[in-house]
Amino acid sequence: MSDLEQKIFDIVVDKTELTHDRLSREARISDLEISSLDFVEIVFAVEEEFDIEVPYNANTMDADFETLGDIIDAVAAEIAKQQ
């Protein structure tokens, strides 16, 4: 597991009542039942942690982010943009 993955999973655990064993790149956000408000908080925490802006819109969440891997990839892409 990459350092980036680990940090994002830590944030998800912190903002939800999910445990680490349920989190993986393939885990579907709908299966994890993360509420839209929790998701807004997760994205905020990720942005603060990595000093990036994630292009996330609650209205198109289902289309844009299906799995936790999609979030990790989006964050990795934003970090790469900055470097």
């Binding site: 807004v40 994205v43 905020f44 996330y56 819109n57 609650a58 209205n59 198109t60």
Partner: peptide
């Protein structure tokens, strides 16, 4: 902006492609 409910382009009520 922080609440993530604002449209990406414009206000499209009841439209399939609305984004906020």
């Amino acid at each position: 902006e922080a609440l993530r409910v604002v449209s990406r382009d414009t206000c499209r009520p009841f439209s399939k492609d609305r984004t906020g």
